[in-house]
């Protein structure tokens, strides 16, 4: 596969678009007509060819522009990167994992040469070439975690495991909803997981924590999560809420198709070897309603899910203002026919 990287923006004039191929591989998260919150994980094993799960970390046509957008967000607010001092081993774990997987999965884009502790990394799409000593921070331009977080799509959190829980002790967060890294860094599992409506009582979070703490090396897991965003904006942070919060008022019946985006997060978790920490990676995929409805099966499915979504969840995800308009817009695709179980587009 040789990828043509698009030049596009995730802010201001919002030129972000999905190609036909990108639409087809979109990680559509609804196998059924109703949505129930769950934290069910599955092994993060190699998915089918072309799928977003084909490789350990997915690099797609948005790669270069997304990395630029991340750099921009970080430049405007350096607080999007934070790491506590005891996380250095985990930082190197992250660098090793990302460099090794990218160079194995995309050898035409990334290469890694190792001579003992002397490593040379080349990232062709971003025109980076760097020799450094593994384990010696002074030979990199910046922290190893920041260095590679800038070169992989998505957000990353490094978790420290201690006191029978997990602490979010480092993060690079430039494209996630509802996280304020500078505020949340250092928090324990139950502190940073604010209550999700309909969920806290069920002990779901306790079970998920127990499951994650016993995660093993060499056996990563994944799950999908979703929300919706107005405009293809990656940085929907609480920090910049004043910048994008008002966008929810700009949706009209005429622009629903272009403005309203389904935002899907591919979350993956890895046990890290030398730190015994965990890597939590959150990769965001955006698709607008027009693009989504090029596959009527998806439009039908999403119409039903969104229409019947529990109002507490709609409130929690901030979807109330444009829900009716979007459901109305989608209804034209829905003939009510049974479309069976599964997330496939056709």
């Amino acid at each position: 596969m040789s990828l043509a990287f698009k030049k596009e923006t995730f802010r201001d004039d919002y030129t972000y678009k999905n190609s036909v191929e990108a639409i087809k591989r979109f990680p559509f998260p609804f196998p059924e007509d109703t949505y129930m919150y769950s934290v069910n994980m599955e092994p993060h094993t190699k998915g089918p060819k072309g799928a977003v799960t084909e490789h350990t970390f997915d690099i797609d046509e948005h790669y270069v522009s997304e990395c630029l957008d991340k750099a921009k967000t970080l430049e405007l607010d350096p607080g999007r990167y934070a790491v506590l001092p005891h996380m250095m081993d985990a930082q190197w774990d992250f660098l090793e994992l990302t460099m090794e997987s990218l160079s194995t999965d995309y050898p035409h884009l990334f290469t890694l040469k190792k001579d003992g502790k002397n490593w040379t990394w080349e990232n062709k799409p971003l025109s980076i070439k760097k020799s450094f000593v593994f384990g010696d921070v002074s030979t990199l331009d910046m922290d190893p975690f920041e260095y590679m977080s800038r070169q992989v799509q998505g957000d990353f959190v490094l978790l420290d495991q201690r006191n029978d829980t997990l602490y979010a002790d480092a993060g690079f967060i430039t494209s996630q909803a509802d996280w304020s890294l500078n505020f949340d860094v250092g928090m324990a599992w139950h502190e940073w997981h604010g209550p999700v409506p309909q969920v806290t009582k069920l002990g779901v979070m306790d079970r998920a924590l127990k499951y994650l703490m016993s995660m093993q090396l060499g056996a990563p897991v994944r799950r999908l999560n979703w929300t919706m965003t107005i405009n293809p904006r990656l940085d929907t942070s609480p920090e910049n809420y004043p910048l994008w919060g008002g966008d929810r008022n700009t949706v009209t019946p005429e622009n629903v198709g272009k403005k309203v985006h389904l935002r899907v997060e591919l979350q993956t978790l890895f046990r890290l070897p030398r730190s015994n920490g965990l890597l939590f990676s959150i990769r965001c995929y955006l698709i607008n309603m027009e693009e989504l409805s090029t596959f009527p099966r998806w439009a039908k499915r999403f119409h039903r899910v969104f229409r019947d979504l529990h109002s507490d969840l709609a409130e929690y995800k901030g979807l109330v203002k444009f829900r009716e308009m979007t459901v109305q817009w989608l209804s034209k695709f829905d003939d009510g026919a049974d479309i069976g179980v599964g997330t496939h587009p056709e």
Binding site: H86, M87, D89, D160, Q161, R162, Q216, L217, G218, A219, P273, S275, N276
Partner: peptide
């Protein structure tokens, strides 16, 4: 053998 598992980790802080 299994992959290594750590139930006796050092507290890095």
């Amino acid at each position: 053998i299994t992959f290594p598992v750590n139930l006796f980790a050092l507290e890095k802080r």
